[in-house]
Amino acid sequence: MFLEQLLNGITLGSTYALIALGYTMVYGIIQLINFAHGEVYMIGAFVGLFLVAMGANIFLALLGAMLFCMLLGMTIERVAYRPLRGKSSRLSALISAIGVSIFLSTLMALLAQTNTRSYPEVISNRTFNLGSLELSVLQISILAVAAILMIGLQLMIQHTRLGKAMRASSQDLDASYLMGINVNRIISATFAIGSALAAAGGVMVGVYYHAVWPYMGMMAGLKAFAAAILGGIGSIPGAMVGGITLGVLEIMGVAYISPSYKDAIAFGILIIVLLIRPQGLFGKKIVKKV
C-alpha cells in the first residue's frame, strides 16, 4: 500500500517537475514568474488530445504537442514580455503574464466548447505485479518519458553551446550580452524548451487521468510554481526534486490524512519548508551585498 502510494506520488510529481522546469528556467534568466506557463501546459494537453483524436500515435501526439507549445511559448514571450523588458518593473511583467494566462484559458474554453474532455485510453492500463507492488504500463510509460526528458535537458544544459549560453545568461544577463551572446535568442530558446516540457506534462496528465479541461492550468501552474520554489527557484535539479517531493507529499497526504485537504497539505508543507530553509531545498543562499 505504502509503496503503491509512493509510486503514485512519484508519477504525479514527475508531471509537476516537468512544468516546474519551465518556471525555474525562465525565472533563472529573467526573474519572471511566467504565470501563463500553466496555460501552456493545458494547451499542450489539448493539442495532444486533438492529435490522438485525429488518429495519431500517442508518441507522435506527444511530440506534436511539444512542438506546438514551443512555438506558443516563443510567441507569448515575443508578444507579451519582450516589449516590457528593461523598461518596467518586474511586477508589470507579472501582470502581463497574468493577462496572457486569462486570455489563453478563456480562448481554450471557447474553442473546446465543453468543460471537460476525456482522453481515450491510448496506453493500456494493464497492470502487473512486481513482488507485492502493482505497476501499470501507463505509470511506467509516464515515468520513462519524464526521465528521458529530464536527462535530455540536463545533457543539453551541460554540454551544448546553447546550454552554456543559457547558464551564462542565468548568471548575469548583462554580462552575457556584453560577451556577445544573443540574449533575446537565449530567452526565446528558454521559453521554447520550458514550454515543450510543460506540454509533455500536459499530455501525460491527460493520459493518466483521462481528462483535460480549459481551466486545468491554474492549479497545476500554482503547484508547479510551488514545486519550483520548494526546490529553490532558478535551480534545475531543484525543480525536479521539488516536483517529485510535492507529488509524493500530496498523495501521501490524501492517503493518510484526508482527501478533502489535498491542496492545503501541499501548500502547508511548502510554507513550513520555506520557514526552515528560506532559499528552498537547492537554492543558493543570497548573501546581502552592500
Partner: peptide, 28 residues
Amino acid sequence: IPTLRLEGDYLAMVTIGFAEIVRVFFLN
C-alpha cells in the same frame, strides 16, 4: 512574520499558499 526571512517571490508563494489553505479550510 515570515517576511523576516523571505524575500520577493518566495514571500509571494507563502501568501498564495496561505490563501489556498484558507479556501480549503472553508471548503471543509
